[in-house]
């Protein structure tokens, strides 16, 4: 049975999807089979990082949710990017067509069907991990993707707005009785000692800290165009991400 890892951030723009993508590449290179579901229906972006062009994308997650396609037809093998002999990465993208996004917002999603998609994905591809990229804030889909998670990964920046939000998310995680929650601090400015940040966050939120990632111009500029660990295999941040992957 695949382990479900839900990636969340309270505020947007924390680098959540970039971290998810890097972690999936690291695991695939270790021979793991990773499935990614882009449940960030309002502003999907995972397909861009994995270089799926519009022309390559036929059916998407929303097609499945509306009964317009089988789940099988929405799965894309993006393993090539990781260049691993035995590991695999499969992606179920969300549509970035505005009309389709508006339809989801208006009519909502069938959450039972969405949950069934996770287990079916596992059945179809025999996965080690399912990574869920959720939307930010407290939304319908985050309540659900959190509830099914084996691990909740909360990505935050050292920003006061994030602090309040993350403590709320972790409180919610407790109420939903999640087995394990982990905080990743990203984009740390001002030359703070990373070890110190890790310790403090752990104390403040009474939670496990996956890792602390310093601000990096490379990371910022890469933005949504490429996967960090592929472009900068020797960078210290890649080392940090590998450590986080080991904890999963």
């Amino acid at each position: 049975m695949a382990k479900i890892v839900t990636f969340h951030s309270y505020r947007r723009g924390t680098g959540r999807t970039s971290i998810l993508a890097s972690l999936s590449v690291i695991l695939a290179r270790q021979g793991k089979r990773v499935g990614i579901v882009d449940t960030n229906i309002q502003s999907p972006s995972a397909h861009i990082l994995f270089k799926l062009q519009d022309k390559d994308i036929g059916y998407t997650l929303d097609n499945f949710l509306w009964g317009e396609s089988e789940l099988e037809q929405t799965i894309y093998d993006v393993s090539k990017i990781a260049n691993s002999a035995s590991g695999r990465i499969f992606l179920i993208p969300s549509s970035d067509n505005m009309a389709r996004i508006m339809r989801v917002l208006k009519e909502g999603i069938d959450v039972t069907l969405l949950t069934s998609a996770f287990s079916k994905f596992d059945e179809l591809r025999d996965l080690d991990f399912i990574f869920l990229d959720s939307s930010s804030g407290i939304t319908e889909d985050i309540l659900l993707t959190m509830a099914v998670a084996d691990i909740l990964m909360v990505v935050m920046r050292l920003d006061e707005q994030d602090y309040q939000g993350v403590s709320m998310i972790l409180d919610l995680a407790k109420r939903l009785e999640l087995p394990r929650s982990m905080v990743i601090v990203n984009d740390i400015h001002g030359g703070y000692a990373l070890k110190e940040v890790e310790k403090q966050i752990g104390v403040t939120f009474k939670c496990e800290v996956g890792g602390a990632i310093p601000h990096s111009d490379e990371f910022l500029r890469l933005a949504s165009e490429d996967i960090f660990v592929l472009r900068f295999p020797e960078h210290p941040i890649t080392g940090t991400l590998e450590k986080i992957a080991a904890k999963i």
Partner: peptide, 16 residues
């Protein structure tokens, strides 16, 4: 109006 992830109050030093 960012009801799902409010944040601007923090800049004005407010909490719950």
């Amino acid at each position: 109006t960012d009801i799902q992830s409010p944040g601007i109050h923090v800049i004005f030093g407010m909490d719950d």
